[in-house]
Design a protein around this nucleic acid. Structure first.
Lengths: 145, 145
DNA sequence: AAACTAATGATAATAATTATCATTTCGGAG
DNA sequence: CTCCGAAATGATAATTATTATCATTAGTTT
């Protein structure tokens, strides 16, 4: 966690941006919450510590964290952008249960390689991708019966 | 195209929904436009034929078309849901150029199989998935130089 | 400490989509 | 063929997430 804060400070320095208590606080609460969190949810959390915080600030800082390589946007298709930790959390994809919403982070290097080749076979230079696998998790399958 | 209209009529019949000129018209214009079209864009097109059409109707009919298996939602992450033809257009994924927005429909059965296995290895029964490959297309790579 | 500039917070704006509801229209019963 | 009840439509308001605006506040540099 100290690492991440250092990364952020360095990023701000490099970009000539200011290190403010709000930015520190938002990063701090973001880091404390593993998983996928929306700007709105994070706003609710930060507000408890500092009720004077503005929600626009939270939205703004999340964008900064993405640029700084500390957060990554995730879009489960429900109209809300969520953020996950990016620092020391290498790229992965998501498995999402259609019943309960549970998510699992997955990674398959063969799929990754095939995606790259598939793109290249159409002349594309692959920059990034999104892959969301939707299904029914084990728990929900059992409940069904 | 007659096929699709038949499918729609049958669907409406089965669901005890009414066959209205608006629904016919919207389906008709949707079928005439290959590619990915938003409800808003389709509304603009249908409006030319019948200026009295309401945009809510277009949004509603698109949902019907999805249920009838004639259209499929596509989400390129820009906040707009687009629709593509589904009937006789089997599942595929998309390759999207980050520069010019060009899209290519792609399909790789090995990737599909690996996705299924990956999900199963976590106890999930895969129902569907979304895979968007982003990159730079050949044209845009050349323009760069 | 002064001056300059960026950041903040409150609020308005935006954009896509959905909900509401009065009016119209379809489709079957008589 | 006409009447009735339910469903569909169109206009509009509401919603939701996010972004823009802008006056005020607060870092930073000198």
């Amino acid at each position: 966690m100290e690492d991440e804060k250092q990364v952020f400070t360095n990023y701000l320095l490099k970009k000539n941006l200011r290190d403010t208590p709000q930015r520190e606080m938002i990063l701090d609460d973001f880091l404390k919450n593993e998983g996928h969190i929306s700007a709105e949810q994070l706003y609710d959390i930060v507000k408890k510590r500092d009720p004077s915080i503005g929600q626009a600030t939270v939205y703004r800082v999340m964008k900064l964290l993405v640029e700084a390589g500390l957060a990554r946007e995730v879009d489960f298709g429900d109209g809300v952008i969520r953020y996950e930790h990016s620092y020391k959390h290498p790229h992965h994809d998501h498995l999402i249960c259609r019943k309960c919403g549970k998510t699992v982070e997955v990674m398959d290097s063969i799929i990754e390689e095939l995606q790259k080749r598939l793109a290249e076979s159409f002349g594309f230079e692959l920059t990034d991708h999104e892959m969301y696998l939707y299904g029914i998790c084990e728990d929900c399958q059992n409940k069904k019966d």
